[in-house]
Simulated scan of single mutants.
Amino acid sequence: MKDLTGKTGLTAASLYNAYGDKRGLFRAALDRYVSESIGNRIRRCEALPPLEAIHSFFDEILRRSLNDRQHKGCMLVNSALEMAPHDAEFQKIIAGVLTRIEGFFSGASEQVRPTGPLRNHSRLQSSPGTCLAF
């Protein structure tokens, strides 16, 4: 709270009045992160052809991760690891976001199967026991 009040110029009382408590404030921050970071990424990628959409999704994550000088990581992943195991509300929120991401990938992959470019893409072909490289 000290960092927030110092950076925003708001008092702790104002923040608590607006969000109820630290948990409410964190929930609002996570909701905004999901909407702005993940939601916007999905919307941008859904406008692309399927293979380009999948590539772009991962490319954005990689660029963001490589430029993360403070090594903060992804707020969704951090929340999934730190909060979801101990908090049913956050577990439900995070599961919903992960389902949304899964839906994006399912939709994109369905558009290129079974005879589309994904099947014939040489970079995606692998032998048993190897990982696919995107």
Rank of each mutant, 00 (worst) to 15 (best):
residue 2 K to L: 05
residue 3 D to E: 12
residue 3 D to S: 12
residue 3 D to W: 04
residue 5 T to P: 00
residue 5 T to M: 02
residue 6 G to S: 15
residue 6 G to I: 03
residue 8 T to P: 01
residue 8 T to E: 02
residue 9 G to Y: 02
residue 9 G to E: 10
residue 12 A to W: 04
residue 13 A to W: 08
residue 13 A to N: 10
residue 14 S to Q: 05
residue 15 L to Q: 09
residue 16 Y to F: 13
residue 17 N to I: 00
residue 18 A to P: 02
residue 20 G to M: 10
residue 20 G to A: 09
residue 21 D to G: 11
residue 21 D to P: 08
residue 24 G to S: 01
residue 24 G to N: 02
residue 24 G to T: 09
residue 25 L to S: 04
residue 27 R to I: 01
residue 30 L to W: 02
residue 31 D to W: 07
residue 31 D to N: 10
residue 32 R to E: 13
residue 32 R to H: 07
residue 34 V to C: 14
residue 35 S to C: 03
residue 35 S to W: 06
residue 35 S to D: 09
residue 35 S to R: 15
residue 36 E to K: 11
residue 37 S to H: 12
residue 38 I to R: 06
residue 39 G to Q: 12
residue 39 G to S: 09
residue 40 N to R: 11
residue 40 N to L: 08
residue 43 R to G: 02
residue 43 R to Q: 13
residue 43 R to D: 08
residue 45 C to P: 10
residue 46 E to C: 13
residue 47 A to N: 07
residue 48 L to H: 02
residue 48 L to M: 05
residue 49 P to D: 12
residue 51 L to M: 15
residue 52 E to P: 11
residue 53 A to N: 08
residue 53 A to S: 15
residue 54 I to W: 10
residue 56 S to P: 00
residue 57 F to H: 07
residue 57 F to V: 00
residue 59 D to Q: 11
residue 61 I to Y: 01
residue 62 L to F: 10
residue 62 L to C: 08
residue 63 R to A: 11
residue 64 R to M: 02
residue 67 N to W: 00
residue 68 D to S: 09
residue 68 D to N: 12
residue 68 D to E: 12
residue 69 R to S: 14
residue 70 Q to F: 01
residue 76 L to K: 07
residue 76 L to G: 12
residue 79 S to H: 00
residue 79 S to A: 01
residue 81 L to M: 03
residue 83 M to A: 05
residue 83 M to P: 03
residue 84 A to V: 07
residue 85 P to D: 13
residue 86 H to R: 14
residue 86 H to Q: 12
residue 86 H to C: 05
residue 87 D to A: 08
residue 88 A to M: 03
residue 89 E to D: 15
residue 89 E to L: 10
residue 94 I to C: 01
residue 95 A to S: 06
residue 95 A to W: 08
residue 95 A to D: 13
residue 97 V to Y: 14
residue 97 V to K: 13
residue 98 L to D: 13
residue 99 T to I: 13
residue 100 R to A: 04
residue 101 I to K: 13
residue 102 E to I: 09
residue 102 E to W: 09
residue 104 F to H: 07
residue 104 F to K: 02
residue 105 F to R: 03
residue 105 F to M: 08
residue 105 F to E: 04
residue 106 S to C: 15
residue 107 G to R: 14
residue 109 S to M: 15
residue 109 S to E: 15
residue 109 S to T: 12
residue 110 E to N: 13
residue 110 E to V: 04
residue 112 V to H: 06
residue 112 V to S: 05
residue 113 R to A: 14
residue 114 P to R: 04
residue 114 P to K: 01
residue 118 L to N: 04
residue 118 L to D: 03
residue 118 L to R: 07
residue 119 R to E: 14
residue 123 R to P: 02
residue 124 L to G: 04
residue 124 L to M: 14
residue 124 L to Q: 05
residue 124 L to Y: 02
residue 125 Q to F: 00
residue 125 Q to E: 05
residue 126 S to H: 05
residue 126 S to M: 03
residue 127 S to N: 01
residue 127 S to R: 00
residue 128 P to H: 15
residue 130 T to W: 01
residue 131 C to Y: 00
residue 131 C to G: 00
residue 133 A to P: 00
